[in-house]
C-alpha cells in the first residue's frame, strides 16, 4: 500500500503521520521534542517502520514542516518543505472544506488563518510575545502544581469567574498570586487563565479581522477543554475540534507532498527508513570571518559535511 508521510517539527512537539492513497490517516504520533528534534523524528520513524513492515507500506512521498523543517528535510529526503501556515490550512481545508476561520495554538507559535472558498485569504502569527501560546499554560500549570493534562477539566468545574490579566506571563503570575490570596479556588483561577489566554490571542491576532464560522481549533492546545470553552464563550459560536487536532500541520504537509509527487510523476526523494540509522549530527559555530559573527549550522552525515547554512555571505553554505 502506498503511504505519504508528513513530519512537523515544532518547538514543543514533533509529529509524524502517514496517510494512505485515500487520505485516511493510518499512523499518527505526537512526540515531545524536548529540545532534540532529530531523536524525536527518529523515534517517530522507527515506530512507523515497524508498522510499515507488518502492513506492507510503500512510502511514496514525504513532506516536512515546522521550525526544524530545513534540517529534518535534509535528513529524510523530503519532497516538499513547507511553512507551518500553509501546511495547517491545507489539512483543515481538506477535512472541512467550508471552514472560514482556523485557530491554531502550538507551543510557542499561535496563528489565526482566514479561509474563503478553500483559499487562505489572510493570516496572522504571534509576534514578540508568547502569552497566547501553549508555553504560557505549561508554565502556569507547573506553578499551580497541576498536570497540564488535567488543567482543562479542572477549569470546567469552576463556579465563579475571576479576571486575570493575560497581557504577559509575568503580570498574569502576579495577578494569580493576588487572586489566590483573595480566596479564589484553583479551578476558578485556572478558568481565569484560560479566559485570559483566549482574550489575549483574539486581541493580538484577531485584531481588525472579521472572524466567521465555521471555526476550527487545532494545535496541541486544542486538547484543553477549558480553552475550548473559553473560545466558545468569546466568539459566541460552536468550535470544531478535528479528530487529529494535534498533528494537522503534519497531515497538511503530507497532503502537499502527495499532490506534488502525483503532479510531477517523479519518484520520491525519501531516503528510506534507513535514514534512522544515519549518524546525523548538526553542529553550530560562530564564524569569525567578519563582525557579523553569524551562527553557522553544519550538518554532518556519517562523518561527512552534508550541508551548511546560517551565514549571511554564503562563504560556508556555498562550500558544500
Amino acid at each position: 500500500m502506498r503511504v505519504y508521510l508528513g513530519i512537523d517539527i515544532g518547538s514543543v512537539s514533533t509529529n509524524v503521520i502517514a496517510i494512505d492513497e485515500n487520505t485516511n490517516v493510518v499512523f499518527a504520533r505526537y512526540i515531545r521534542t524536548n529540545g532534540q528534534p532529530i531523536n524525536s523524528v527518529k523515534q517517530g520513524l522507527r515506530e512507523l517502520s515497524v508498522q510499515a513492515l507488518s502492513d506492507g507500506y510503500e512510502v511514496s512521498a514525504v513532506g516536512v514542516t515546522g521550525s526544524g523543517r530545513q534540517m529534518i528535510g535534509l535528513m529524510v529526503g523530503a519532497d516538499v518543505v513547507k511553512n507551518e501556515i500553509t501546511a495547517h490550512a491545507a489539512a483543515t481545508v481538506h477535512f472541512y472544506p467550508d471552514v472560514q476561520t482556523i485557530f491554531e495554538i502550538g507551543g510557542q507559535d499561535s496563528k489565526i488563518i482566514i479561509v474563503k472558498d478553500k483559499i487562505v485569504t489572510d493570516f496572522s502569527m504571534n509576534t514578540v510575545c508568547a502569552a497566547g501560546t501553549g508555553s504560557f499554560l505549561d508554565h502556569q500549570a507547573e506553578r499551580l502544581n497541576i498536570p497540564i493534562e488535567q488543567f482543562g477539566d479542572l477549569a470546567l468545574t469552576a463556579e465563579n469567574t475571576v479576571r486575570i490579566a493575560g497581557r504577559c506571563t509575568v503580570f498574569a503570575e502576579s495577578d494569580m498570586i493576588a487572586k489566590q490570596q483573595y480566596g479564589y479556588s484553583k479551578a476558578e483561577i485556572i478558568k481565569g487563565l484560560c479566559d485570559a489566554l483566549v482574550r489575549n490571542y483574539l486581541n493580538n491576532l484577531g485584531r481588525g479581522k472579521v472572524l466567521q464560522p465555521p471555526f476550527v481549533f487545532q494545535g496541541g492546545v486544542a486538547a484543553n477543554k477549558g480553552i475550548i470553552r473559553a473560545f466558545e464563550e468569546q466568539v459566541g459560536h460552536e468550535i470544531i475540534i478535528p479528530k487529529y487536532f494535534g498533528v494537522m500541520g503534519a497531515i497538511g504537509v503530507a497532503l502537499s507532498a502527495k499532490s506534488q509527487v502525483e503532479a510531477s510523476g517523479q519518484p520520491t526523494n525519501f531516503k528510506g527508513f534507513d535514514c534512522i540509522e544515519l549518524d546525523f549530527v548538526p553542529k553550530s559555530f560562530e564564524c569569525s570571518g567578519c563582525s557579523n559573527a553569524c551562527e553557522v549550522i553544519k550538518v554532518i552525515i556519517n562523518g561527512e559535511v552534508a550541508a551548511m547554512w546560517g551565514d549571511k555571505c554564503g562563504k560556508w553554505s556555498s562550500s558544500v
Binding site: 513547507k82 507551518e84 501556515i85 500553509t86 483559499i119 487562505v120 485569504t121 493570516f123 502569527m125
Partner: peptide, 25 residues
C-alpha cells in the same frame, strides 16, 4: 516588524506563507 532581536526563520516563514497565499489566490 523588525527589531535588534528578530530571528531570521520567523521572517522567512512569514514571507513563504504570504507568497504561498498570494499564489493560491
Amino acid at each position: 516588524r523588525i527589531d535588534e532581536h528578530t530571528g531570521e526563520s520567523h521572517v522567512q516563514t512569514r514571507f513563504e506563507a504570504f507568497t504561498d497565499m498570494l499564489k493560491m489566490r
